[in-house]
Each structure stands twice: as structure tokens, then as C-alpha cells.
Simulated assay, not measured.
Amino acid sequence: MVRSHLNFVQQSIAELDKKIDNIVTPYESAITLLCTIPGVDRTSAITIISEIGIDMSQFANSKRLCCWAGLMFNAWQ
């Protein structure tokens, strides 16, 4: 019984992964670009895009984006 439940969960996860991949297809170039940042993997990039979007015009500069995201802004950059 445990094995069948585990198989069901694994199948559900695989189906969900496919749905996510279909949803993020239009954003592949942004995902690829975000993945060039050290420490940002595909999952993190998708999360960033889902939270912020790809239109950065709403943020006047990187400091405002960092403040919105609750991150410390490095004044040396």
C-alpha cells in the first residue's frame, strides 16, 4: 500500500513538473539569463520570475528591486 501511494505521489510530481515546464516556456530566455547569476538555478529563476515578472520598468533601479524583495543592496555595485 505504501509503495502504490509513493508511485502515485511520484507520478503526480512528474505531471506537475511537466505543467510548470509548459507554463514557463515563454520565459526561457529570462530563465537562462537569471541562471548566469552565481547561486541561481532553474528553480530559483522560475521563482524569481513568478514573484517579480520580467518587466523591470516598475523598479527605477536595482536598489528599489532589492528593497522590494527584502534584500540588502550592495552599495559597491
Rank of each mutant, 00 (worst) to 15 (best):
C67L: 14
L71P: 12
F8L: 15
G70K: 09
A45K: 07
S4L: 07
N61I: 01
I23Y: 11
V2S: 13
I49F: 02
I52V: 13
A14R: 15
A45R: 04
A75R: 13
I23N: 08
D17G: 03
D55Q: 01
D55W: 00
V2I: 11
S50T: 13
A30T: 01
D55N: 03
M72R: 13
L34P: 05
M56L: 08
N74I: 06
G53P: 08
I20N: 06
S50R: 10
E51L: 10
I52N: 04
S50P: 03
G70S: 07
S4R: 09
L71S: 14
G70P: 09
T47W: 08
A60H: 07
L65I: 02
V9D: 10
T32F: 04
I31M: 06
A14V: 06
V40G: 05
S62M: 10
A30E: 05
M1Y: 13
S12V: 05
V9L: 15
C66F: 12
L16Q: 12
I13G: 06
W68R: 00
L65S: 02
E28K: 08
Y27N: 03
A14T: 13
T32Y: 10
I49W: 05
R64V: 04
Q10V: 07
W76L: 12
T36A: 06
E28Q: 11
K18I: 10
C67S: 14
S12A: 12
T36Q: 14
I46H: 01
G53F: 04
I31H: 04
L6W: 10
T47A: 14
I46V: 15
S62L: 08
A69C: 11
A75P: 06
S29R: 09
H5V: 15
I46D: 00
W68A: 02
V40P: 02
S57L: 01
M72D: 14
I37D: 00
K18L: 10
G70I: 08
F73G: 03
A75D: 09
C67I: 13
S57Q: 04
N74S: 12
S29V: 11
N7H: 09
I31E: 06
E28F: 03
S29A: 13
G70V: 06
A45W: 02
I52E: 03
W68Q: 03
N61C: 00
S4A: 10
T43M: 07
L34Q: 04
M56K: 01
T32S: 09
I37T: 10
